[in-house]
Amino acid sequence: MKFIVQWNGLPTAQPSAVERFMKTGGALPPDGVKMVGRWHSIGELSGCAIIESDNTAPMAAWVLQWGDIFAFRISPALSDEELGAALGAHQAAK
């Protein structure tokens, strides 16, 4: 399953975030989580990633590595095709 991961940090956390990112390369996800892509906002301490996982436990472990710097929001995500199929099933059930 795909998920949208969004993060935000306070400007005061920037030195710690930069130091940790440079030291860890952004802490790649653990086994069981595939990062499809990751993007960072310019001029803000925020960004988003698309990940794939069938297990939320490694996702939780991953974001907890950064939980002292960022607040996270993780939402299930659907492709256009998956959403279209769900909408079609919903319409057919009416």
Rank of each mutant, 00 (worst) to 15 (best):
M1Y: 04
M1T: 09
K2N: 12
K2E: 10
F3V: 00
I4K: 05
V5N: 06
V5A: 10
W7L: 09
N8A: 11
N8H: 15
N8Y: 03
N8R: 14
G9Y: 01
G9A: 09
L10Y: 03
T12W: 00
T12C: 00
A13P: 00
Q14W: 06
P15V: 05
S16F: 04
S16A: 15
S16D: 12
S16V: 06
S16L: 08
S16H: 07
A17G: 09
V18W: 01
V18K: 09
V18F: 03
V18H: 00
R20H: 08
F21V: 08
M22T: 06
M22W: 04
M22F: 04
T24E: 04
T24I: 11
G25C: 10
G25N: 10
G26I: 00
G26M: 01
P30G: 15
P30L: 12
G32N: 05
K34Y: 07
M35N: 09
M35P: 01
M35H: 01
V36G: 05
V36C: 11
G37C: 12
R38C: 05
R38G: 07
S41N: 10
I42G: 01
G43R: 14
G43D: 14
G43T: 13
L45F: 07
L45I: 06
G47R: 05
C48Q: 11
A49Q: 02
I50F: 13
I51C: 10
I51N: 06
I51K: 06
I51D: 05
I51E: 07
E52M: 03
E52I: 01
S53E: 10
S53L: 05
D54Y: 03
N55K: 06
N55W: 07
N55M: 06
N55E: 14
T56R: 14
T56I: 15
A57N: 13
P58N: 10
P58E: 10
M59Y: 05
A60F: 08
A60W: 10
A61G: 13
A61K: 12
W62C: 01
W62T: 00
W62G: 00
L64F: 11
L64N: 10
Q65Y: 07
W66S: 02
G67Y: 03
G67I: 05
I69S: 02
F70D: 03
A71Q: 14
F72E: 02
F72S: 03
R73Y: 07
R73T: 15
R73E: 14
I74V: 15
S75K: 03
S75M: 13
S75R: 11
A77Q: 05
L78W: 15
S79M: 04
E81D: 12
E81P: 00
E82Q: 15
A85R: 15
A85M: 08
L87I: 05
L87Q: 11
G88M: 14
G88C: 14
G88W: 08
G88F: 12
A89C: 02
H90K: 09
H90G: 03
H90R: 02
H90P: 00
Q91N: 12
A92V: 03
A92W: 03
K94W: 07
K94G: 14
